[in-house]
Design a protein around this nucleic acid. Structure first.
Lengths: 274, 274
DNA sequence: CAAATAGTGTCTCTAAGACAATATCAC
DNA sequence: GTGATATTGTCTTAGAGACACTATTTG
């Protein structure tokens, strides 16, 4: 017969947590990078494209489909550390930033069983990707991303890598508690519910770009104000007048005494983040 | 010998997810309510206090400590649905709102083993709590909450219910990726890492109060602008000039043709959320 | 009338958007 | 000089904060 009043250590020594049903837990990462395109004219600025990293699945389920990098949580790490480990291991890139964007736990979202995913938005600088070098035969590729509202509540997500084009349709809807979330209309060939995760992450990235929070991580430590402006314009898909951008951003940066050189026009002062 | 190329359904039929280690997953809820205090003078407005719901733990670990309501995720629900189920079952209150505020997965945060918690902030209207009636002998009680920055990066969290006072100390720190989070200095007697979860949830609530998002859920469907103003002042711990508040909030509300009556002063028009 | 809240008008200051004008480099 | 970007100045408009004033009710 058991004692009426077990001590805490006695209680814990008899406690078997594996008696209860448990889900598997993953972290999936939407890794963003801004790619500079080739410039036709030596003195013109390069155009920028926002892109995300996708990996081609080598095994079931969704074999040969494109999916977000990610993997299972291990017992000695936080979900954030898991995300960091997965993005560095699987994609061989080092994120400058890692931001949680949501938990996806709908029953049935993964055909393998009860698996809940923790989604992170990650920012990768173009510099670091160039150093690693892009293995063209690799199963990990950067897809240019575009995401625009079509009508009232439906949005079109387009991911492009060379000849490959994935087009997903998403519907915006309100949860019972007033928050808006995306529902997948057409997954566009993306694995699992990853179209939805990507839409959520991009929405969070855009929100963070409004207050300059997520801008700096795309650039090297020293940058021109015009480069910073292009980052905000690329992410938010807007155009800003240079004079106004400079005035607003001035409180977030400090100038250095260095300048760009070699462009076919007036050199620009380099700035650091404040 | 296995076939080289299994089909997806063959693959899934052989897949055993329970071979891999899995954590237990919980949802914990920080349920907020604004309590009107007694008014000394018949014609004076009542003072408001922000409060949260805590339950006294009846079993190990942290037996007899106060803790957040919450419980384990079941296979047929999302973490949000789990939070809703736990707050309605355990506390017998119906939340008007449910907002995710973070995932807590530090190894060792729960002495029972590998357990990760999904934290939600929930808003409860005073009306609904009054209808249920407060059982004084119950193990669930509303604690008045105060949370203020002491110095640079340390904040003091105080929870008060009649003679019981829990005082926790929290340090603000930056994660490796630039986001700020709280670290517990003194748990103040709260179970697990719940002091930290409460601080995170209150910070999220305050952020949501800035743009009037989380204000309306504290009030009945029809309310006076002054009542709405008091809600924002109570949550954010600030004072606002009535003229300015009314101007800003006017775009979020629509007036009805009803008025308050019986107070010792000019009646106020009732409004609805737009 | 006194006390208290409800509600309006307006002055000032600041921030944001638009736009014009000047500066400087590579070729 | 030409063509491109870099950088500054300023006009206008919208919004936020401060504050004075009027309105309405109950006892």
């Amino acid at each position: 017969m058991k004692k009426q009043q077990a001590t805490e250590s006695e209680y814990l020594s008899q406690y078997d947590i594996t008696k209860y049903p448990r889900p598997s837990v993953t972290a999936d990462i939407v890794a963003f990078m801004i790619r500079s395109e080739e410039n036709e004219n030596y003195k013109m600025d390069s155009a920028n494209k926002l892109s995300i990293l996708l990996v081609k699945r080598g095994s079931h389920p969704f074999r040969d489909c494109w999916a977000l990098p990610g993997g299972f949580l291990k017992p000695d790490e936080t979900v954030e550390e898991c995300a960091y480990r997965e993005i560095t291991d699987e994609a061989n890139v080092t994120p400058v930033s890692l931001m949680p964007v949501g938990v996806f736990s709908e029953p049935g979202r993964d055909p393998r069983g009860w698996i809940i995913s923790h989604a992170f938005a990650s920012i990768i600088s173009e510099e670091s990707v160039r150093q690693v070098g892009g293995d063209d035969a690799s199963d990990a590729q950067w897809f240019d991303i575009s995401f625009d509202r079509q009508s009232d509540a439906t949005s079109l997500l387009t991911l492009t890598y060379e000849q490959t084009e994935l087009k997903a349709t998403l519907y915006e809807e309100e949860t019972r508690f007033g928050r808006t979330q995306f529902r997948i209309g057409d997954s566009g060939g993306l694995a699992f519910d990853h179209a939805r995760i990507i839409a959520t992450a991009l929405t969070a990235l855009r929100e963070g770009a409004r207050n300059y929070d997520t801008l700096f991580d795309f650039l090297p430590e020293r940058f021109t104000l015009t480069a910073l402006q292009r980052v905000q314009e690329t992410i938010m898909n807007i155009q800003i007048l240079p004079a106004n951008f400079r005035r607003k951003v001035s409180e977030y940066v400090v100038e250095t005494d260095e300048y760009t050189q070699g462009a076919g026009h007036r050199p620009a002062k380099l700035y650091r983040r404040k």
